[in-house]
């Protein structure tokens, strides 16, 4: 007794009856939800908004409706200065759609300055974003780690309430 079915060559597939070829369009509209909407609106106004957990007092960026550590409802909103330090960085040679980039891009996790934080906590409010004005070598050599950075905002009229309202983070 054999397993039902048989091997089919690609050529044969072209002639076979009942073959369906299709390229789906996968459009979506993703609701940002309650707290993230405030964050996006803040970006449009040139602000980075976080939210404090009432229980453990950590600041969440992007803000959320509840703290996933304490399972308690989130408390007050905090506007952060936007400045911070490069926690870690990497060089990317391909775009989000896998195309080769003409110029490599530097992406980093920024540890944001926030009230009540010393700067060495394992859990911190942060943002994943591009770095500008940083060379490949500075990343590979580890020189960029710990660098002081601040957001470079797009001009007010060009902001859309998106993370790309920040063009990148730059040293200062």
């Amino acid at each position: 007794m054999g397993i039902p079915g048989r091997y089919v060559k690609e050529e044969e597939l072209k002639r076979m009856a009942g073959v369906i070829e299709y390229k789906p369009t996968a459009k979506y509209a993703y609701s940002a939800g309650q707290a993230l909407s405030v964050f996006l609106k803040g970006l449009r106004e040139g602000k980075i908004v976080g939210r404090t957990c009432n229980s453990c007092r950590r600041i969440m960026v992007p803000p959320r409706e509840f703290c996933e550590y304490c399972h308690s409802p989130a408390g007050e909103w905090v506007e952060l200065p936007g400045t911070g330090r490069v926690e870690t960085a990497s060089v990317s040679y391909i775009s989000a759609r896998r195309a080769k980039l003409r110029e490599p891009e530097v992406v980093a996790i920024i540890r944001l300055d926030a009230p009540g934080y010393r700067g060495d906590e394992p859990d911190f409010p942060g943002i994943f974003h591009r770095l500008c004005g940083v060379t490949e070598e500075e990343v590979k050599g580890g020189k960029v780690f710990g660098a002081r950075v601040r957001p470079r905002w797009r001009p007010e009229g060009e902001r859309r309430g998106s993370i790309t309202d920040i063009e990148c983070f730059e040293r200062w």
Binding site: T25, K41, S162
Partner: peptide, 13 residues
């Protein structure tokens, strides 16, 4: 907390 935003996009398939 005010307006709820949404993001439109298209997944690569």
């Amino acid at each position: 907390h005010g307006e709820v935003a949404h993001v439109e996009g298209e997944m690569e398939v």
